[in-house]
Computed example of a mutant assay.
Amino acid sequence: MGSVGLLYVGAVLIINGLMLLDVVPGKAAAAMNLFVGAMQVVFPTIILAQSEGDPEIILGASGLFLFGFTYLYVAWNVLTDAPGEGLGWFSLFVAACAVVYGTLNFTLVDDPLFGVIWFSWAVLWFMFFVLLGLGKVSIQRRTGWFTLFLGIFTGAVTSFLLLTQNYPTGDGAALIGAALAVGLFLLAWLLGAPNRVSVSRDKDPLNASA
Rank of each mutant, 00 (worst) to 15 (best):
Q165H: 15
L180F: 15
L13R: 04
L104R: 12
Q40M: 09
W189Q: 08
W118T: 02
D202Y: 13
W89R: 05
S200Q: 05
G115D: 06
R201H: 12
Q165W: 11
I117H: 05
F146G: 08
F69K: 00
T143H: 07
G60I: 00
G68D: 03
G170T: 10
G135H: 07
L190Y: 12
T107Q: 10
L18G: 08
V116P: 02
A95T: 10
G172M: 06
G5E: 10
A179W: 14
G183I: 14
D204P: 08
D22K: 12
L150T: 08
T45L: 11
S91A: 15
A188V: 10
L175Q: 06
D54C: 05
A156Q: 14
Q140D: 01
M127Y: 10
L148D: 06
V78W: 00
K203D: 14
I57E: 04
A11V: 15
V94P: 11
A49Y: 05
Q40A: 06
T158E: 14
A82C: 00
L104P: 11
A208G: 07
G151A: 01
G53T: 05
A98M: 14
T80E: 08
V116A: 02
I139T: 04
V78H: 02
M19T: 08
L6R: 11
P55T: 09
L206D: 06
V42Y: 13
F43C: 00
V116K: 01
P112T: 04
F126M: 11
V197M: 09
L184E: 15
T70L: 04
V78L: 01
G135C: 02
S120M: 09
A173F: 13
A210L: 06
A122N: 11
V24C: 03
P44A: 00
L206F: 11
M127Q: 13
F35M: 05
S200P: 04
F119K: 01
L113E: 03
T143W: 03
T103H: 14
L134M: 11
N195L: 09
V130I: 12
F114W: 11
Y71L: 05
F35A: 12
G26Y: 06
M32W: 15
G60V: 00
G86R: 01
K27D: 11
V182G: 09
V123T: 08
L48Q: 07
V197K: 13
L18R: 07
A98L: 13
S198C: 08
A95R: 10
L64P: 00
L20G: 01
G2S: 15
D110W: 10
F126G: 07
L72Y: 06
L34C: 04
F119E: 01
G84N: 06
D110P: 08
N195G: 07
F185T: 12
A82L: 00
A178M: 07
F106N: 06
Q140L: 02
P112W: 03
M39L: 10
V123A: 06
N207K: 15
L13P: 12
G192V: 12
G17T: 13
W145V: 03
L190M: 14
F65V: 01
P168V: 02
A29W: 04
P112G: 05
E52Y: 13
I58K: 05
L79A: 05
G151T: 06
L131T: 07
I14L: 15
I15P: 10
A96I: 09
